[in-house]
């Protein structure tokens, strides 16, 4: 990885390379009703240093539409496109539909097994998103066997992965210069390093990585693993970034992607 000194927090117009698509990303902000304005100052500077903002789920604390209003207030009108997936916290109160509606009303593209194409920085950038689910990683994963509850558990992940494959495939057909996979749960164990090994099966699934590798992507972004690490890679060579706020230690992480990069294995 190369890390360049970037724009200041006050929003210098300096850029590393003119052809770069600048991606800001954060997950696990867990905003409660008492968190109004917590991230707004940082987000107000995004137009100077980013072309789009990705939100990798767990945007609310208890998963209520009232908390989603707080999230909406943080990102409404920030001047760049915002794309989100929901996380497990956002489902906790059974108000995920309301949360989605509140965020969409604020201009956020909320994805669940869907994709969106953005025209930013002179390029077509596609984002395919799903919350994803858990089950574990190769050699240490749950199987679709036995009790109906266990089968339903694994099928949930399998369905989510299938929808991610299809959404990334749509972006390939659409001729996007860059494709990004956005999930809440992790596709790889690399970015879980620091979490207790015993809970890895509850933090992600290899099925998501298989989807990303089979359809191809330039970058995979996820959250969920607060004690994990930022950097990882799928078996197929797609870079993975864990942007859970406790991991990145900032309001968001910034990545500069180049449309003439390797483009993912399945392009």
């Amino acid at each position: 990885m190369s890390v360049a000194t970037g724009p200041s927090a006050t929003g210098s117009s300096a850029t590393a390379a003119e052809d770069a698509v600048r991606v800001a990303a954060v997950g696990d902000i867990h905003l409660g009703e008492d968190c109004t304005g917590l991230l707004r100052t940082a987000f107000d500077g995004l137009t100077d240093c980013a072309d789009l903002l990705l939100l990798a789920g767990d945007l609310t604390r208890h998963g209520t539409a009232a908390e989603a209003e707080v999230v909406a207030g943080e990102v409404r009108g920030i001047g760049i496109p915002v794309v989100a997936v929901l996380g497990n916290h956002d489902y906790h109160s059974g108000e995920e539909a309301g949360i989605t509606r509140v965020l969409r009303d604020a201009g956020v593209a909320v994805l669940e097994g869907e994709s969106v194409v953005l025209s930013v920085a002179g390029h077509k950038v596609g984002v395919a998103g799903t919350k994803g689910f858990c089950g574990g990683f190769v050699g240490r994963s749950a199987g679709e066997f036995g009790e109906p509850e266990m089968k339903a558990f694994v099928r949930t992940t399998r369905l989510s992965a299938a929808r991610l494959t299809a959404a990334l495939g749509d972006l390939a057909v659409g001729g996007c210069a860059l494709r990004i996979a956005l999930t809440h749960f992790s596709p790889v164990p690399d970015t879980l390093a620091g979490e207790p090994l015993e809970i890895y099966p509850f933090l992600g699934s290899y099925l998501l990585a298989e989807a990303i590798d089979s359809a191809g992507a330039d970058l995979s972004v996820h959250g969920h693993a607060h004690l994990g690490t930022e950097h990882g890679m799928t078996a197929g060579g797609v870079r993975v970034r864990n942007v859970a706020q406790p991991v990145i230690g900032k309001a968001y992480a910034l990545y500069h992607l180049h449309p003439d990069g390797h483009g993912g294995p399945a392009r």
Partner: peptide, 14 residues
């Protein structure tokens, strides 16, 4: 307490 500051650097992915 989570840091809510903007980052002062980016990662170049090329």
């Amino acid at each position: 307490v989570a840091c809510a500051d903007a980052p002062d650097r980016w990662e170049e992915l090329s």
